[in-house]
Simulated assay, not measured.
Amino acid sequence: MNINDIKQIKLHDFLAAIGCKPVKQYGVNLMYLSPLREEKHASFKVNTEINQWYDFGIGRGGNIITLAELLYNSSDVSYLIRQIERNAPSSVSVSLPTAKPITPQNSFEHLQVLPLIHPALIKYLGERCIDVETARTICKELHFDTRGKHYFGIGFPNIAGGYEIRNPFFKGCIAPKDISHFYAEEPKKVCFVFEGFMDFLSFMTLRRKENDGLKRQDYLVLNSVSNVHKALEPLSHYEHVQCFLDNDEAGRKVYQALLTDLKIHVTDSSRLYAGCKDLNEFLCRQNTLPQKPVRNLRRGL
């Protein structure tokens, strides 16, 4: 096999040949327990349409070669080809779970997923007081057409392969809509919960000042209060859930739902930014508020 032959191998067939099988399917996306690390909840995605993978836990993705580089800890292409050939599926074929077709919530066409660099989006993040480099480690720049017009926005990935989309004039999502779940490098007993990704990015911006990054903590973003039922199963595997929800009726209802349905310790941390609607407002008011509340927020974590 040459490298072009190797790239034609279906990723889901290759993964099946090395003993990895999908645990969920969302349209053309298959979700796996990552073959690159230990995890309890599937956060490794394979898009069968474009034959690409993405591991949400480490923020890496690509084709079968880039996967082999990490699996076999080598950048020697000839060695990687030999390793893939050794495990290349001949008659092995993964049995995909059946799934009902998903009807998109919006008619997005010609979707492009790019690095986050557009000046208008960078300006928007600045207006929300979000650290740009922090946002770039998680978010993408999405370009798409809908109803005959071209749009672009900040894309925040979820566990099902969809995206939440934001720009100064638009708030929506590319289906499937789901929660977002990020894992630390080592298993954690505590998970921090947020309603939306702007609050999550606000929290990460505050933590960046203490060099406390994505890999040191588990985080779950609901992406909608209506997704709280989807969060119950993954959150049930922790000993403690700490909620950074909005200081409004919707936020209180989500907290009560988690408190009632989870048989673990659930903490309401919204008091740490009392007087603000949410974490983003708290972040944006930093320059006018005394420094003590900011230290109190960090100390409360």
Rank of each mutant, 00 (worst) to 15 (best):
K10R: 15
L11S: 02
F14Y: 15
C20V: 02
K21E: 09
K21R: 12
P22N: 10
V23W: 01
Q25C: 10
G27K: 04
V28R: 15
N29I: 04
L30C: 05
Y32L: 03
P35W: 02
L36K: 03
N47P: 05
T48A: 03
I50W: 00
I50E: 00
N51D: 07
Q52V: 00
F56N: 10
F56R: 13
G57N: 14
I64V: 11
I64N: 04
I65P: 05
T66Q: 09
T66G: 01
L67P: 03
E69Q: 14
L70R: 10
Y72H: 15
N73H: 15
N73E: 14
S74L: 05
S75M: 07
Y79N: 05
L80D: 09
R82E: 14
E85L: 12
S90M: 11
L96I: 10
L96A: 07
P97I: 00
A99M: 09
K100G: 11
I102T: 08
Q112K: 14
L116V: 06
H118Y: 11
A120L: 08
L121H: 07
K123C: 11
K123M: 11
Y124T: 07
L125G: 05
I130A: 10
T134S: 12
R136D: 09
R136K: 15
T137L: 09
C139R: 05
C139W: 02
T146M: 15
T146W: 04
I154M: 13
F156R: 01
P157R: 00
A160N: 07
Y163A: 00
Y163S: 02
E164A: 09
E164S: 13
F170W: 13
K171M: 07
I179W: 00
A184G: 13
E185G: 15
E185Y: 14
P187L: 02
C191Y: 03
E195W: 04
G196N: 13
G196S: 14
F197L: 06
M198S: 15
F200N: 02
S202I: 08
F203T: 06
F203A: 11
M204K: 14
T205F: 13
Q217R: 13
Q217E: 10
L220N: 04
V221F: 06
L222Y: 10
V225P: 00
S226K: 15
N227E: 05
V228Q: 04
H229T: 08
K230C: 01
A231Q: 01
L232F: 00
P234A: 06
L235D: 02
L235F: 02
Y238A: 02
F244R: 02
D248I: 05
E249A: 09
G251P: 01
G251A: 11
K253S: 07
V254P: 03
Y255C: 01
Y255K: 00
Y255R: 01
T260V: 01
T260L: 08
T260Q: 12
H265L: 14
T267K: 10
D268N: 15
S269Y: 10
A274N: 09
C276F: 13
K277R: 11
L279M: 14
N280A: 12
N280G: 12
E281M: 11
R285Q: 15
Q286K: 15
Q286F: 13
N287A: 12
T288L: 14
L289C: 12
P293S: 11
N296F: 05
R298C: 13
G300H: 12
L301N: 10
